[in-house]
Design a binder for these strands. Sequence first.
DNA 1: GCGGATCAC
DNA 2: TATGGTGATCCGC
Length: 850
Amino acid sequence: MDSTKEKNGNYKDDLLLRMGLNDNKAGMEGLDKDKINKIIMEATKGSRFYGNELKKEKQVNQRIENMMQQKAQITSQQLRKAQLQVDRYAMELEQSRDLNNTIVHIDMDAFYAAVEMRDNPELKDKPIAVGSMSMLSTSNYYARRFGVRAAMPGFIAKRLCPQLIIVPPNFDKYRAVSTEVKEILADYDPNFLAMSLDEAYLNITKHLQERQNWPEDKRKYFIKTGNPLENDKPRKEVNKLREHERSISPLLFDDSPPDMQSQGNPLQGNSDEEDNPQTLQNSIVFGTSAEEVVKEIRFRIEQKTTLTASAGIAPNTMLAKVCSDKNKPNGQYQVLPNRQAVMDFIKDLPIRKVSGIGKVTEKMLKALGIITCTELYQQRALLSLLFSETSWHHFLHISLGLGSTHLARTFSEISKAEEQYNLCQELCSELAQDLQKEGLKGRTVTIKLKNVNFEVKTRASTVSSVVSTTEEIFAIAKELLRTEIDADFPHPLRLRLMGVRLSSFPNEEDKRHQQRSIIGFLQAGNQSQSAPRCILENTDKDQFLKSLEMSHKKSFFDKKRSERKWSHQDTFKCEAVDKQSLQTSHSFQVLKKKMNENLETSENSNNSQIFTCPICFREQRSISLEAFNKHVDACLDGPSISGTSNMFSHSHASSTEVNKKENVYPSFSQSEKQDYETHQRNSEINFIELPETEDNPAKAESVDALSDKHSKEECASLPSKPFNIEKCCQNSSSTVSLEDIASLSRQESSQPYLQALVCPVCNLEQKTSDLTLFNVHVDVCLNKGIIQELRKDKVNLANQPRENTKSTDNSGRVQKTATKPKRPGLMTKYSASKKTKPNNSRHTLDVFFK
DNA sequence: GCGGATCAC
DNA sequence: TATGGTGATCCGC
């Protein structure tokens, strides 16, 4: 939603600068900036609101003054030290740069206003805003020419534009439209992350991979024509026709830079001839590239809702968000997944464009002469001395063009026995349905439990006769679960994942059938027959992935700390029996087929494969696939849970050290690294940084903060506390000399990929030299397909804080509100401290979406 | 821990 | 006439 932060400056940000503002030419229609500012100031000056704004500004100015004083005291020696420290971290970040994901940010154009205009043709070609005289939520582009913006009070807007029509918000309607859009988005990423009614992130990496093999008719869409039979729909036919015309207009499809096509996207196989949608008479075929996918998404949104969306495509969320703004409205933009493209894009980007940089941060950085990301990077050493670690880490991420490469959703653990039983039952029900579809019955019920520390347990029970109904399966699963709950009593089981599996199918037909599935691969080593499995993760797999990604940078202790904290959210809505679920089901079939193909390939050529067990992360060299599967099953089913856990953690701790080694010896060959890592694994846990970190809570705190910054583009609060250089230097690894760092700096641009590893599951080359990341990939390949496809929205939606929650508290602090819904009567901070009278004309920019 | 500041929508 | 509401994090106290 367009809120206070809008492109050409924003309403509140400029409020205090309006007195002396000058630039800007007059628009064709509407007002020039001078005039706008004048009107706003006249309406504002002298008000209590204005007084408060002045007060707040003073505080910020004071902060800036303090900062400048601190800056004046910094010695050149301090600065040099800081530079080393920061550059070391920058190199770590650079090394972990992940360009393998394709993230899309979708943003509906002037959403509320667009909906109102769509449904009331009289509003077309008129300046409108949604909201009240007290506050506007959004305005259409016509009104924006008069300076009418979101977060502006309606009465001021009226002064700017007397003919402005203010429409009261109709959230039910917006929600309904939003649902329509989200149904489309789910086709491309069932785990998409909705930030509000009009904004969402998608990770289309997987979709792109699958799409490469799609026949044309799967990418073909018919253009809706003005069929009189559809006139019963509320929308006016005239709109449809007009929108249809626009759907294939250059505006929709010619919005990316010309160089985009030629540079090519590594994710796409057969690109060129398909890069432009082929428009036939009444249909349109989209290509297989990311750009084409996003065009398709936007086309479908427009066809379905007659509303337009803008989109950004990039290797991470931070960039994707900025991109979606670039060609707004009704446009898209891509930053190609290579470092140069990212850095070029970032180069002159004003920091204020980045999500998380608000007006205060902007102002403080501006005082240091920092406006663009390049300047942000240039001043990195200084920033590390003036800002908190959390903040400068965040800044460094931004200035390197880094951001989240996956869509983290957060969930709370499930630790109440009752909830666990309920969950279990639901999973059994789900499983029973799947079994029914497949016509299967089995004798062995297995539950899989993963606790908050990622320790995995599987417990199975085999009965004498086959079972298949919810009740039958649950009866067995419940007992297995009860045993586990009882075993930990009085401590609760703190679960983040639960899965139920049925196996031991009686006949060959079932066996053959199952062997063709992904599950067959997973279980082939353990049982001659394999099983459909229904897994629900109460934390998103991506979240898991995030944690693992982070792990190689974090000590054992830090990892454990962050693992402890998972707040709660899931939003993917599974619609009942409609087109949606059919498509989902279809995509599952595709996945299964693909996995099967990969399996065959792997089997044919597995003599020389090196597999990495996704559970213990140990490499299994030169073994057969069957043996590998046996190993995985042993890991999964093995009784030594703590052992598994240790290996898990240990492996990551080792990887951390490997990374350090890489820093020191960047020319390490892959085999040397593997040997090194093996050695580390075989040696004692002395690389787990537990004692050091425990003794040094400040560091633990900081590493957590770092993980926060990795995981999401968070707002950076700006304390005036200087960064403690001594402590930091002390904390840095003593094995890295300054010369090493210097030599590394020189190699900054050298090729980081030493050798490609081949994933044993998807059989695709993973261009990373980082074994941990590779293992993460394998793990995801193994689990994600099943989880994403079979996971249903079991989490009680009523318990969701709200859909656009984007934050996870994995900082180790006590979580206050994330998992439980606020009670309606609760006094909010705002109403308790400031609000003087109830606001009856309440309207918000975002609303719970369920 | 709590409350203020910041940020997002 | 009149300048939102809510959730989240960070940080100072």
